[in-house]
Design a protein around this nucleic acid. Structure first.
Lengths: 144, 144
DNA sequence: GTAAATCATTCATGTCCTGAATCGATAATC
DNA sequence: GATTATCGATTCAGGACATGAATGATTTAC
């Protein structure tokens, strides 16, 4: 390999940044950023009501950032904070109806983006890509 | 599609961020950031000596950022700034020997990262991924 | 030859994220 | 059982990164 631009790492990096930007533009109208969506998705994924600390670990961000994200989502009525009665230090976050609806819209936006970016790809290649990326995410310990 | 986390866009976003971070960690010893490498790669790619304005457009960043990146690379002796004699407003950036060597090392680091992240993938899938990502980058008008 | 446009540069600003300090709640130790 | 240490959430100040507007030098258009 004598060209950085041809490595998977480099391509993932640049394409990833591009996707983040484009996705951010699409969800801007909902007053959401990609990280907010990531948090909501993590909430739905984990059936067990999650503490903010857990969420921070799952998303790979500082706990203080989860506070800010949750504040915003709470203001939007997308999540609810409830003190865990068993351990009143913990705040358990749960997705509200409104949050689920928002998440659904964001998923639709992401799917549209998928169609747009992969328009020139044959369906088989598109599916293979999705699958491979999923496997990489799983291998890297990312939420999947 | 009812789960954001299963979209290509979302997976590219999170994996892309991860790759950026990991790549950044690997090239830190060279006193370089991913954007510096991107700039050097763009320099080698375009055979024609590029103005900073061109570079900014190619990389999709503000011209003022190219100034900062070039400043740093110049300090490292990786690039040279030469006033274009035909149009003395332009600074043409060229990669030095030292820059080429640095770029080579960064490419090696990226290749190692590729091996690491795709270790669990069969070779065929790995190649397919690289190819598909390349096609996506090309389609999105990114440097490739 | 004067005015408008262009390129590089500087600078102030905004955004995003982290790490340290704080506060309330729980666990551990004696 | 009281004191001490630890833990989770929160606030806050600060750092890193990127942008856009203002400036200065040069070129182009009229």
């Amino acid at each position: 390999m004598n060209d950085v631009k041809q490595t998977i790492a480099f391509r993932l990096g640049t394409l990833g940044a591009l996707m983040q930007d484009r996705f951010a533009a699409r969800i801007e109208a909902y007053d959401l950023k990609p990280k907010h969506v990531g948090l909501m998705a993590a909430l739905r994924g984990g059936a067990t009501a999650a503490s903010q600390q857990d969420l921070a670990a799952r998303l790979g961000v500082a706990p203080s950032l989860v506070v800010a994200l949750a504040d915003h989502l709470e203001r939007l009525g997308a999540v609810e904070r409830v003190r865990d009665p068993d351990d009143r230090r913990r705040q358990t976050l749960t997705l509200t109806e409104r949050g689920a609806a928002l998440l659904h819209d964001c998923a639709a936006a992401a799917a549209e983006l998928d169609d747009e970016i992969t328009a020139s790809l044959p369906e088989s290649e598109r599916l293979a890509l999705r699958d491979t990326l999923g496997r990489l995410a799983a291998g890297a310990g990312l939420p999947h």
